[in-house]
């Protein structure tokens, strides 16, 4: 086999992998326009009534609202909390720093089922199952490592001489942080907040355990409607998350290409 043929074969293989990675996600789009309540693919008839259903059916609407509410609160809480912790860990010299760092990233490696039953046990005990607070606490735990890892990486790439310089110029540690470090961390913070939002918005396992019929998030609603019915509203919900993801990527793309222009604007 010649090198050229080998390369061609490799690229064909990669093309197939790309299809495998992306195509399954797109299945939801036609399914959302299914005329009948079946899993038939591709659908035999078309309709938009499931879109109407998503907005008119209270359980779907509430689930969506809950998901956004929880994810937004989690994004804010963990970004603030995680940034503070990452900063303390990056700049501090206190004993046990390594242990705190390991602890802060531990939620990433504990099997999610165990996290779920452990939190469920506590929330049952505290009668918090199916509350906004329970979701915020649980999802903050899941999202925190993402924030800490992201912000720590951002801080590492930052010259800590800048803060010292600010100090010699008359800025207190707090002012130096807010006028120098924070603006330079902007991009890391945006990424961290987005990851925290996504981690919360995407969680199914913990949410299944700690939700109640009165308080569900979107993934829980999708999960239960998938196991109970063949309601294509599921596909509509999936299509919407797909659209949000695509939008997010587009925004990220625009921001990245605009970065060059930003420098000029700052003059």
């Amino acid at each position: 086999m010649s090198a050229r043929k080998g390369r061609a074969a490799l690229m064909v293989f990669c093309g197939l992998v790309m299809v495998l990675l992306i195509a399954p996600a797109l299945v939801a789009v036609p399914m959302g326009f299914n005329g009948r309540a079946t899993f038939e693919f591709p659908p035999q008839s078309w309709s938009t009534r499931w879109y109407e259903n998503l907005v008119t059916d209270v359980t779907w609407r509430d689930a969506i609202v809950n998901s956004f509410k929880v994810a937004a609160i989690v994004a804010i809480v963990t970004t603030v909390m995680g940034t503070a912790a990452a900063y303390g860990l990056a700049r501090g010299r206190f004993p046990g720093r390594g242990a705190v760092m390991a602890l802060a990233t531990a939620p990433m490696i504990i099997p999610i089922v165990l996290v779920a039953i452990a939190l469920y046990a506590i929330f049952l005990e505290q009668k918090m199952v199916g509350t906004l607070e329970a979701f915020v606490i649980a999802h903050s735990l899941i999202a925190l490592p993402f924030v800490i890892v992201t912000v720590t990486a951002g801080l590492k790439s930052l010259d800590d001489g800048l803060e010292r310089a600010a100090r010699t110029l008359g800025a207190s540690p707090a002012v130096a942080f807010f006028t120098v470090t924070l603006p330079l961390l902007k991009r890391s913070l945006a990424v961290a907040a987005a990851l925290a939002f996504a981690a919360s918005f995407d969680d199914v396992v913990v949410a299944i355990f700690i939700s109640s019929p009165e308080f569900q998030t979107l993934p829980v609603k999708i999960y239960s409607s998938l196991t109970d019915t063949v309601d294509p509203t599921v596909a509509v919900a999936s299509t919407i998350t797909l659209a949000i993801a695509a939008l997010g990527m587009a925004v990220a793309f625009v921001v990245m290409t605009k970065r060059g222009v930003e420098g000029d604007a700052a003059r």
Binding site: D159, G161, R164, R167, T168, L169, G170, S172, L184
Partner: peptide, 20 residues
């Protein structure tokens, strides 16, 4: 006095200009 109250000018080897 903490560093920011000493009113001493400092120039660093690697400039330490605020890039933003």
């Amino acid at each position: 006095l903490p560093a920011h109250k000493r009113n001493i000018g400092v120039v660093f080897q690697h400039y330490a200009l605020f890039p933003h």
